[in-house]
Amino acid sequence: MSTPILEARSVSQLFPIRSRQRLFARTVMQRAVDGISVSIHPGEVVALVGESGSGKSTLGRMLLGLLPPSEGSIHFRGEPVAGLSGDAARRFRREVQVVFQDTGASLNPRHTIGQSVALPLQHNLRLPAGEVGRRVDTLLDQVGLAPARFRERLPHELSGGQRQRVGIARALASEPSVIIADEPVSALDVSVRAQVLELLDRLRRQRQLAYLFITHDLGVVRALADRVLVMQGGQLVESGEVDALLTSPQHAYTQRLLAATPVPDPARQAQRLAQALAGRPA
């Protein structure tokens, strides 16, 4: 098998727990991520699911190099990230990009869309000025935003879905090989969500782009991912190939997640009602 682009080897993250009452007591540490290993290969989509607070984003931030692991190590193309410097460190920062749920909201409100997308081209790729304009247009095209209509607009003149696509264009500008996507489509309407998922899938096929896809939407997991990892309380509780895992989930949380996912079938209402009333002994 090829060398993974990005890899976490038994990483843990410890955070101090703050307690109001015991101001002077010794600090207790919480294992937000507890001994997790994961590898992401070129062109692969790895989904990461788990309940709120299970440590998904914390693992994502460690893989991005934003948070040094308390234990274990992160490897980029086989090399420990902690030891990278100079060109190698720059390459890591360029090739590993992130898209958040509200990536669009973090755009500079005074920069036009064109300027926002141009920034990483100038800084990360150091392209000459003439080349930048052309690349901005190609990127906007790729995310389905007509350059002539959108290049000169300001962020507030775009819908949420359009801003999210600008965020993705900006991440793509650096020509990444892997994107850590933390709930990138959960704030989007169904129709726009489908468009963005198609875009991400096309980039995976065309450029061997890989993703760590953090979400609790099992529809998204099924539509896009190859493998899925399930986290609970900082630990990996289940993992495997998507279709197999979702057909016969083993862990209680995975089963609960599957049962809780809304289905567009009003016939389920009767069952839900019985469940809601039964859940509470009178």
Binding site: V190, R193, A194, L197, L200, G219, A223
Partner: peptide, 21 residues
């Protein structure tokens, strides 16, 4: 809208969406 929902058989490559905004 109903067609854009992700069902058990939806896979990237065949996802439906309403064009435009």
């Amino acid at each position: 809208l109903l067609g854009s929902m992700l069902g058990p058989d939806s896979r990237a490559g065949n996802l439906f969406s309403i064009p435009g905004s």
